[in-house]
């Protein structure tokens, strides 16, 4: 019953947030700031994680499928498929749910407990629209960039393994695997998923932050809850979207 009530409140809040902005100039200004804060500031962590995970995936496959029956180029092929299909969208968004989601929830939550949201409401401003929509739009607009960066640097990570040790995989075999049976739709599929996940992360975090009651402790709790709920929803929608888009 409580979950149903929360879902109802979430839906109403998002409907309030998705409205025509009071001032377009202010909306674009806010969105620009959010793109920098939520998106550009996340680039380094996306690159760092993608390179290492790309390298580890290649090494693990090589170490665990080390049999003459499986040609070496398949390690490159499997690395590409894992990175394109799941890592650059789902796993990256699970990581970003922690960074971006907690950022949104704590920022809006702090504004709630310090009466800044009440101040907006008193002025006659739709606070949900003013605070939440720029964050949702900014993150959904920038997530394809993060997703593509993740794909690129994940593949680079695999290359690094080839450079470090040709016993694990040779560069030529890795490149052959990357090109083998490539289906460009996987990139589109990954980007579609990441945009949906960006909506889930930003809207759920905003909901938890907007409805904080209490003080600093509750802001922390809201931040944690938003990450947990976003992660659950990302995994649920991963299943649904895979069924819808790939089968």
């Amino acid at each position: 019953m409580k979950a149903l009530q929360n879902f109802g409140e979430y839906t109403l809040l998002i409907f309030r947030a998705i409205a025509i902005p009071e001032r377009w100039s202010e909306f674009f200004k806010q969105t620009g700031k959010e793109i920098y804060k939520l998106g550009v500031d996340s680039v380094w962590i996306v690159i760092f994680i993608s390179v290492f995970i790309g390298a580890v995936i290649t090494m693990q496959i090589s170490l665990n499928v080390n049999t003459p029956l499986v040609p070496q180029f398949t390690f490159g092929y499997v690395t590409r498929e894992i990175i394109l299909l799941e890592f650059s969208s789902t796993i990256m968004c699970l990581i970003l749910a922690g960074k971006v989601g907690s950022n949104i929830a704590s920022e809006i939550g702090t504004m709630r407990v310090t009466e800044q949201i009440d101040a907006l409401d008193i002025m006659g401003i739709n606070s949900a629209n003013y605070l939440i929509m720029p964050k949702m739009v900014a993150f959904m607009v920038f997530i394809p960039v993060l997703s593509i960066l993740s794909m690129f640097f994940g593949i680079i990570g695999g290359y690094l393994v080839g450079f470090i040790s040709s016993d694990i995989i040779t560069i030529a075999n890795y490149e052959l695997g990357l090109r083998y049976w490539f289906y460009p739709y996987t990139i589109v599929y990954s980007i579609i998923k990441s945009v949906v996940f960006a909506f889930i992360i930003s809207s759920i975090a905003a909901y938890f932050g907007y409805n904080v009651k209490g003080g600093a402790l509750q802001v922390g709790k809201a931040s944690t809850n938003s990450v947990v709920m976003s992660s659950v929803m990302i995994l649920t929608f991963d299943l649904i979207l895979t069924q819808l888009l790939l089968t």
Binding site: T114, E115, Q116, D118, A119, I122, G124
Partner: peptide
């Protein structure tokens, strides 16, 4: 109507509620 009325209101909050 409420939105328009609110533009006729000013409020000083206990913690000032300035935007950080």
């Amino acid at each position: 109507e409420l939105k328009l009325l609110r533009r006729e209101m000013g409020m000083l909050f206990q913690g000032s509620a300035l935007f950080d």
